[in-house]
């Protein structure tokens, strides 16, 4: 008895007519798949690098910009590391059953996502940091009977906090809000059975999170976290608004003094582009590695 009861299947599936299998067709396919965008960027990169080596103006611009590269990289790395810690904490709060923890975490995330990052930078640098330091000072004054007149709570004044520090705090708080949602999504993507299995073996909620849920969730969100790092590198340029001398601030100062706006800002843009492209290739490599590991482990 035949198992096929429906209409007769066609004997053979005809070749897709849009695919040209001739030698010429294969050449066209290969041309279409080539990363032309990268080629164009490399072309302009070589052009600018050539200029930097041959033209005194570009050489001057680049040596000036590179004065700020340390600040840019330092700001990005430190703010990003802090943001991961804040984001993981707030992300755990967002999936918490405890209403107080959940509401505090949600309030933070909603406020952060609703205020432009530039405005956050200004508010944190000029409002929140001074208020917090003033509060610490007030506490120090109140505690002089116990801690003495010159206690550690009184040593830092608002004007003692450098703008680099304020910028890093602001970027970390801003990005922590976005990363909280990334971690939340990662945690919620793990099937409920994993938590139940861990709990039924007697693990506490936090033990189950630490040993079972988070290792799987973090692996899943590594690519978006990598993209956040790239975004953080770009947004670190905002610290120039506070006068922190990163590469953007150096470019602004140089352009304002020399009136070479075109050359300076083109070079600045290219410097960012060079860094982000290298990083995005890194993220891509990470993604591929995780995918092949994922195939091995399910």
């Amino acid at each position: 008895m035949s198992l096929t009861t429906g209409p007769q299947q066609p004997a053979a599936i005809p070749l897709d007519p849009t695919t040209d299998h001739s030698a010429q067709g294969r050449f066209v396919d290969r041309m279409a798949n080539w990363p032309w965008w990268l080629l164009i960027i490399v072309f302009f990169g070589v052009l600018i690098a050539w200029n930097a080596m041959t033209s005194e103006l570009y050489a001057a611009i680049f040596s000036r910009l590179l004065l700020g590269i340390g600040v840019t990289i330092f700001t990005t790395l430190v703010a990003y590391s802090l943001a991961i810690v804040i984001g993981l904490t707030a992300g755990l709060g967002r999936v918490s059953q405890n209403p107080l923890v959940f509401n505090v975490a949600t309030l933070y995330v909603q406020v952060i996502r609703g205020v432009p990052i530039l405005v956050q930078l200004l508010v944190i640098a000029f409002v929140i940091v001074p208020i917090v330091i003033d509060g610490v000072n007030l506490l120090g004054n109140a505690l002089t009977p116990i801690l003495g007149a010159d206690n550690f709570l009184l040593r830092t004044k608002p004007q003692d906090v450098p703008f680099l520090t304020r910028s890093i705090i602001a970027l970390a708080i801003a990005y922590g809000g976005f990363q909280a949602e990334t971690f939340r999504a990662g945690i919620q993507s793990i099937s409920k059975g994993q938590m139940e299995a861990a709990r039924s073996l007697g693990m506490s909620y936090l033990q189950a999170m630490r040993y079972v849920i988070l290792p799987q969730a973090v692996r899943r969100v590594l690519p978006p976290l990598g993209n956040d790092f790239i975004a953080m590198l770009k947004d670190s340029s905002l610290v120039s608004v506070l006068g922190v001398r990163d590469i953007t601030q150096e470019a602004r100062l140089y352009a304002a003094a020399s009136f070479r706006f075109l050359e300076t800002y083109t070079s600045l843009a290219f410097l960012y582009l060079a860094m982000t492209i290298v990083l995005s290739l890194g993220v891509k490599w990470l993604e591929n590695r995780l995918n092949s590991e994922g195939r091995a482990q399910g």
């Binding site: 099937s191 059975g193 994993q194 139940e196 299995a197 861990a198 709990r199 039924s200 073996l201 007697g202 693990m203 506490s204 079972v212 290792p215 799987q216 692996r219 482990q297 399910g298």
Partner: peptide
Amino acid sequence: INAVRAEVGMVFQQFNLFPH
């Protein structure tokens, strides 16, 4: 609850092994 759970083994329909 944790004390009781440690004494009670459970096997699920979907196995729920830890894949990592």
